[in-house]
Structures are given as structure tokens and as C-alpha cells.
Amino acid sequence: MKLFKRSVTLLVFIIGFSSMAQISVSNKYIGGLSKLKKENLSKFKKTETIFVLSTIYDKLEYEAILKDIWTVTPYKIIPASEFSKVDYLSDKYSIVELGGHKVNSTMASGGSYYSLFTYIDVKMYNNKKINSKLSKLSPKKRKKKINGIFNDNEINIARILIFPKDEFIHTSMGYDMNSIFTTLYTEDVFFNYKPGFLRNYFQKINNLLKKGESYWLYRNDHTPGLRNLASKTLYIPSYMTIKYDSWRGKDSEENEENITKIFKKYNYKFEIIADDLLSDKIMNGENIYYLRYVRMNAERFLQVVNAKTGEILYRKYMSGFSYKLKSKHITELNSKIRKSTK
């Protein structure tokens, strides 16, 4: 498709269920934390990072997102329509781009289910190996094998999970890979893909990479800063008022009652806020705190974020057969806030 001059598909097919997190800085994203290798971090810091992101925002908007918060490397924003990965086969570059994979799994009963995983990856490539393998192939074989060669030689740096909307999940079941990627790059198909949300995600990754720290959000913990919620308002993005019906496989309309019900035992101040307004507050550098929620199939990730710094004050990972956020999860957050003030 014309949108992608790149001849490489980033979709990777796997069998089974992947465990991921809203943000990971790690050598791999399945299983447990694999610390980022020092040589890879050193190599990354010497690159220019090429950002290739959704066209729902223009270059100026991405510049506003990254300005002042992406300092670990110099960077350049390239429109997807102008980007070809083979043009950046050099150790001078690292890449930030949208990615995903889908999984068709068979249950013991014989039935099957479909899962879609979507994310933003920060990565490098083993360019020496890629160039060596490509140089040995005829043009015909090169075209056929180039996808696998790139996928086999990725160097993982960091990943951000992006929460797909129900309609996109359903329509993607019948999409081929190129169509899925065209949609990822050209349509508004994610709940947490707003300028402010992206700013805090990239801010956190930047800070981790500058410190040389790995991070794995497939964990539950909190920081002392959580005590601030005892006196501050917790903002809840309006997309969290959408309730997912797993039986019908469909999202509801926004309904504040869905959130107020599960927050009944929350002892502190909270406010439901439109996603765009919350994004604007983050972009304006306001010192506020907000709840960040991602559901990736039956895996759920709940976090409390400092909008000014991008720091994650609380993280809760939930798995199982439920697709919902429940009152017990808010009760647990309530308890952690109370204990952090003592």
C-alpha cells in the first residue's frame, strides 16, 4: 500500500498468550524482566531516533509532545508515507514506530479465540546481519524474505501498550496485515493515543533510558509519592467510563455511572474528565494526577501517573477471565494511599 513505502511488516505471529505491560524497558517483552543490555543501551544513546507514528497528528503536534522531554537521543519525526526502513539500515539510527500482532488460539474444548496486541516500539536492528543476508539474495527472494530478516534481527529497547477500541479489534479479524497497519497509522483506533498521554509515556521511557534502568510493568507496586492523592484530586479519563461486554464482545457508550459505582469506597477526591481536556492539562504541564488504564484482551493494567513528570506512582496488573475493572481494585488503591500517608 502506498502509505508504507517500507517493505517490512512489523507484525509478528506467535502462538499462545503474551504477557506485557503499559511500558516496558527490557531486552524482551514475554515472560519476566530481561534487563536491557548495557551494550545495547550505549549503542542506542549514540543514535538519532526516528519517530514514525500515526498520521492522526501532524509533525508539529509530535514536536510539541517530544519537546523538552525526549532528551536521551537527538530525534527526527518522519511521516509514515515518507518512511522506508531500508533507508535507515545503519547503526546511526534507532526507530520508534507502531506495531502489533494478532493471535488465534485453540482452547481445550476445541473452540478458538482471537487476540490483538498493539503497541509503540522503541528499537534498533542488527544492521550488519541484515545487510549481509540481504546482499546474498536475488531481488525476488529479497522481497519474499525481507520481513522475516528484519523481525529476526530486532534489538528491543522499550515498548508502550496502546489500548485498541473494540470496533477496531473486531474489524481487524478480517484484515490482512497491510490493512491492519494502514489502520494503525491513519485512523483514531486507540483510547490512550492522545498527545498528553503519549507525552507521559515517552517522558517515562526517556527518564529510564537516561538512568540506564530497566522497567517491567508486569508487577504491582507503588512509590511514596502516592501519598499526594490523600489531598489531591485523582482525574479519571472519560474513556474509562466505557464498559466492555465480553459476552457481546462490544464496548458500551460512555457512562459515568460505570466509574462512580466502582469508586464508591474510594475515600479521596476524584473527577471524571474528558480525554481531550486531560490531554491538554498534561501538555500544559499541570501538576495533576490521573488514572491510566489499558486492557489488552483479558490483561488489565491500572496506573496512577503524575502528569507533570510522567512518573508512575502506582501500578496494578490484573489477569484472568474478567475484562473489567472492579471495585476491589479501587479499594486496594484506596488502601495503598492510606498506608502511604503513615
Rank of each mutant, 00 (worst) to 15 (best):
E82D: 15
N27P: 00
K92W: 00
F51N: 08
I77H: 01
K45G: 05
K67V: 02
T49Y: 08
E97Y: 00
K45V: 02
K38M: 05
F44I: 09
K37Y: 09
F51W: 06
T73E: 04
K67E: 13
L60I: 14
N27I: 00
V86W: 02
K35S: 10
S34H: 00
F83T: 07
S90R: 01
K43R: 14
K46D: 13
V52S: 07
E82P: 02
S90L: 00
N40I: 09
V52D: 06
I50P: 06
A64Q: 14
K59R: 08
E39M: 05
G31W: 10
Y93G: 04
K28D: 15
S84Q: 12
K85Q: 14
P79A: 13
K67W: 09
Y93N: 09
L60C: 07
L89F: 03
G32T: 04
L66R: 10
Y88D: 05
V72A: 07
K59H: 03
K67P: 05
I50M: 09
K43Q: 14
I69M: 06
K37T: 01
E63A: 07
K45Q: 14
I65N: 01
V72K: 02
V86C: 04
L36V: 02
K67L: 05
Y57Q: 13
S34N: 01
E63I: 08
K59D: 13
